[in-house]
Amino acid sequence: MKTYTVTEEVEQTRKAALEVLHHNRRGPHAGLPRTAGWAYPEPYTRDMVFTFFGIAVSGDEQLIVSMRKVLDVLAHNQTEHGHIPSLAHDPENLGASDTTPLFLVGISIYRQLTGETDFLQEAAEKALAWLYYQSPSDRLLVAQLPTSDWRDEQWVLGYGLYVNTLVYAGLRMFDRHQRADAFLQEMRHFTITSNVMHRHVHEGLTVKNKPYYACWSYKIYSSERFDLLGNSLAILTGIASQSRAERMIAWIETECGVMREKGDLASELPPNFFPYVQPGDPDWRKRDEEFNMPGDYHNGGIWPFVCGVYIAALVAVGKYQLAEKKLLALAHAVKPSHAQSLEYGFNEWLRAQNGLPKGQNWQSWSAALYLYALKCVEERRTPFFEEMRKRSSREK
């Protein structure tokens, strides 16, 4: 079988990514890692856990020690009911919808890496219990309030795809397979498209006549715009079947091709969200004029960490050549820097229409997800998620 040959460019980017993570390994808050090289000294929980994907496959002992410290501090600052704070060092900074399921994913990755099968078991049980109570209908899918996940400038209301993929991953990783099987069935329910919701109808996240899952759904309301991170995680975790995943990837690449032809996309990498919300659209908000113009930030910006997860999803489906192509594009995308002269920017996000970096440089998760994507491409497998997909495929 053909194997991947690491080019000098890809290898240099790997070394640069490790440099970023080492630079950010200790910050000013309880000695925990920084979220970014200069702008974000705080240890944001979601950023920290996403860095685990890359750190865990790096083999770097110093970075792996930092993983354990983050998890220990998060467990110490967990609320009485099991919720995990948004800032690892601040037990009062609460309200995020994705930190608690990410905490479970982080514990599992660390356990798989070290073999410490009971690490933070009590904290994990509390986190699972907290998630069980997050469903307004007292069923399985968890709900969230707007701007409470990683998209602090985007409304995701009710049952969000991204958060629920993380909940599903946590259930599988902690052997809650019966609940995960039922969770899978609930996600397959269609979003509701009529103006009347009957009592016996339970909404899900499957979109009729589309290969991807809705960004969010709640009762008669939903968003069928495409969420790259949520759908990539759906593939990586096995929520999407092999056939659905293949159709989804073909759809993504076709749609991105159309956007390039129209001048809405300058990169080989897909935007995090599309079609972009335009001024005058029903879901356009006044605040978007300042933060979320079409192709910017959460409204279609290109996020390197999200693209790293997409590359892993390509490997999961067996699209190895396409994954190699996107990895090279990612190596190019992490070079430009904003407002600083750096050989590698590892920026937060890039504007879709011209590929220029607009966020902060030396983002830990941008560096770490490059490492994870590279490992997936090199080994033609997705560490920490292989068994989950096998288990999921048996329940289709």
Results as ranks from 00 to 15, higher is better:
S137T: 08
E125I: 07
L71C: 03
T193K: 09
K325Y: 07
R176P: 00
T114P: 07
R34F: 03
L233H: 14
E378M: 13
D98N: 07
L330W: 03
A88T: 05
P211E: 03
P282V: 07
L328H: 12
G355R: 04
K319L: 10
K335R: 14
I192A: 04
E290F: 11
K208E: 13
W251G: 06
M293R: 11
A30C: 11
W303F: 07
E80M: 12
T100V: 08
R285W: 09
V70S: 07
P101N: 03
A56K: 08
P28K: 06
E379W: 08
S241G: 09
G238H: 09
D98Q: 08
D181W: 09
V258P: 06
T79L: 07
L141Y: 01
H22D: 05
Y168H: 07
L141E: 00
N164L: 05
E387Q: 14
V49E: 01
N164R: 06
Q154H: 13
V258N: 13
G308E: 00
V306Q: 02
R46W: 14
L74T: 01
W155G: 07
D149E: 06
A16Y: 12
T13H: 10
G295D: 00
T114R: 08
K2S: 15
T206D: 04
A30D: 15
T7V: 10
K219Q: 15
Q134L: 05
A56H: 07
A36H: 11
D98V: 10
S241H: 02
G82P: 07
V163C: 02
K325F: 10
G230M: 06
C307A: 03
Q242L: 15
Y218A: 12
E343L: 13
N272C: 15
P136I: 05
N93K: 13
S364I: 06
Q112R: 14
P146K: 07
L120S: 00
K375S: 09
E290L: 09
I235V: 15
W130V: 00
E261V: 12
A339M: 12
L102E: 02
H332M: 04
I302G: 02
E289M: 06
E19S: 11
P304H: 00
N361D: 13
S223K: 07
R391T: 15
H198Q: 13
S241Y: 04
S222Q: 15
A339W: 11
V309K: 03
R26N: 12
C307F: 00
F119M: 03
Y4S: 12
T13Q: 11
H189I: 09
P270C: 10
V309Y: 02
A124M: 00
F119K: 08
E253R: 15
S66L: 05
M197T: 12
S337M: 06
M1C: 10
D288T: 09
L94K: 01
G82N: 10
I302D: 04
M197Q: 13
Q340K: 15
A312R: 03
Y372Q: 00
S137D: 10
E116C: 00
A352N: 03
A96G: 14
W130L: 01
V258C: 09
N77H: 11
S392L: 13
G355W: 06
I109V: 10
T35V: 10
G54D: 05
A329E: 01
W150N: 01
L228S: 10
G355K: 05
A339C: 12
T45F: 02
V20L: 02
L128H: 01
S148L: 04
E268T: 09
K326W: 02
G27A: 06
V334K: 07
M293E: 14
R391M: 14
S58P: 04
H83E: 15
